[in-house]
Structures are given as structure tokens and as C-alpha cells.
Amino acid sequence: MEVLTEVRERMARAGHAFEEVKTEISRAVVGHEELIEQLFIALVCGGHCLLEGVPGLGKTLIVRSLGEILNLTFSRIQFTPDLMPADITGTNVLTDDPSGRKIFEFQQGPVFAHIVLADEINRATPKTQSALLEAMQEQSVTVGGKAHRLESPFMVLATQNPIEMEGTYPLPEAQIDRFFFKLLVQYPSKEELGRIADLTTTSASASLRTVLDADDVLTIREWVREVPIADAVKDYAVRLVLATHTAGDGSVPLTQKFILYGSSPRGLQSLILAAKARSLLSARPNVSFEDIRSVVLPGLGHRIILNLEADAEGISPEKVLAEVLERVPEVL
């Protein structure tokens, strides 16, 4: 019975933490509840997120607010075409030691933070973009032949603008695949716009309080991985991923017609981990089919590459995945 009490307590704490995060963020950010939930899920799963939306929708504000309430170190990198990798990772600089000798000392770049906001990531050159690859995958940075470990929790939140594509460098597929979620920032509704106006055009500024620290986040990460998932539910996730492959078992017609490359195994990992996190945050001890379904779009949307025919016909990955969800049965 003690074990059960402990598990129940964990779930309650995780749920409570999430509720607090949502409440606190909502003081600074209007709307975007689903986006905030997905960001939190990515955080407790140890993943990185790519936020895509037109300018002025509050992408940066959301990320900055999240950094504040989590009591985690936060840094922002504004990606520009002239940004160099060393500007992100840091570099060895020549300094004097206490004895007056000249030595090289590693000067940490902005990547050395718990939460890194890579603003307008697609404006930097591929060389600079790839500077983030090692940090995102290995959670370490190698400068001058020496690897520097990044602190946990480490999370990259990159933003990109789908318009004004002139002078931008689309992210390479390898880097896109390393993002746990790709989240689309939607335009606010009428009511939300009114509240935004109230919140941002008056003298009252929202000061956010800290609700979670790094240890809490790491603890929740451990709990997430302990959530049991039935083989039948796992099989459903596997079939969903396979359905995005043109030659996969149970691939749907739209997939066969418009997809060039399907999701990688990282897509499956994202689905299952995110579903586990979602069930934990819902205070449920097991993963449901609905958990899997709810994370398919953010988890697989950026991992499928459409062909030119899809571009020509205006087919989006979301549309393909919607059909995949409709066609793949939960239980065979």
C-alpha cells in the first residue's frame, strides 16, 4: 500500500506542478494553453522544441516566461546570418592567470544554460545552426578539442518564421529530427487579443514567481519513464509511425502519394515518451490511446518529408497525419 501511496503522490505532485506552471504562465501569456502543455511535456521528457509562427505571436515571451517560472538559467540567442558557432558555444580566449602568465581560458557561450532560446534559428547559416547539433543530442559542447558538459535539464527552444523566407537557411533534416516537438504558434482569438491589449498596454506588469526548479524537473523526468504502457498501445504507436512510410505496413493512400521520407525511430520515441508524460500530468497511471493520438502532430509533423507533388497540391504534413490517425485502427 505504501508503494501505491507513493505513486499516487508522485502523480499528484506532477499534476500539481503542471497546473502551477500553466497558472503562472497564463499571467504573462494569453491563450496558447495547448502550446504551453506541449512545451512542458517536452521539458519533462528531456526534449527540445521548434516553435513556428508569424512574428508577434508571443513565441519569445512564452519561452522566456517558462524560463522564469522554472527557476532555471535562461539565455537567448538571436540568430542572424553573421552569427558564428563560437558565438553560441563559446570560445577559448587568451587571459592572464593570477601569476601573470598568458593562458587560454574557455569562455562559455549562451548555450550554457538550462533553457536556450534560439530565436529565428533559420536566419543563421547552416554552419552556425549545426553548432547546436552536438549540444542538443549529446548535451555537451566541444571547443578546442575539449568537451564541456551542459547542465541538466537542458532544453533548446528554437523559433522560426514561416514567412520572409528570403535570406534564411532552412534547417537541415538531421537537425529538425532532433527536435522532440515542432509546435505551431496559432494566432490568438478575439477574446485573447483583447486580453493581450489589456495586459500589455497598461502600467501593470506581471512578475512571475518560480514554481519549479531543476531538481523537480529531473524528478518528474524519472517518473515519466516509469509510467507503464500496454503492448497494445505501444503497437498502436508503432503502426502510426510505420504508416508514415511509403512502403510501411499499413501505409495509407495519402502517405504513399505525398510522402518522400517517413518518420524516424526518434518519432516513435517522442510519441511514447510524450504520451507517458501526458498520462502522468493527467494523473493517470497508464498510457491511453488518446495520449498517443494527442502527440502525433507535434511529434511526427516535422519528421515526415513531403514530395514536390504535395507542395504543388498544397498538402501539409498535418493533413497527411490526420488521415493516418483516421485510418490506423487502435486495435487490429
Partner: peptide
């Protein structure tokens, strides 16, 4: 059954 699994059985 581990902790969380026991809770599933219980519920």
C-alpha cells in the same frame, strides 16, 4: 508488478 503497475491493477 512495479509501483505504477500496481496502481493500474488497483484502479
Amino acid at each position: 508488478a512495479k509501483g505504477a503497475e500496481q496502481l493500474v491493477i488497483q484502479e
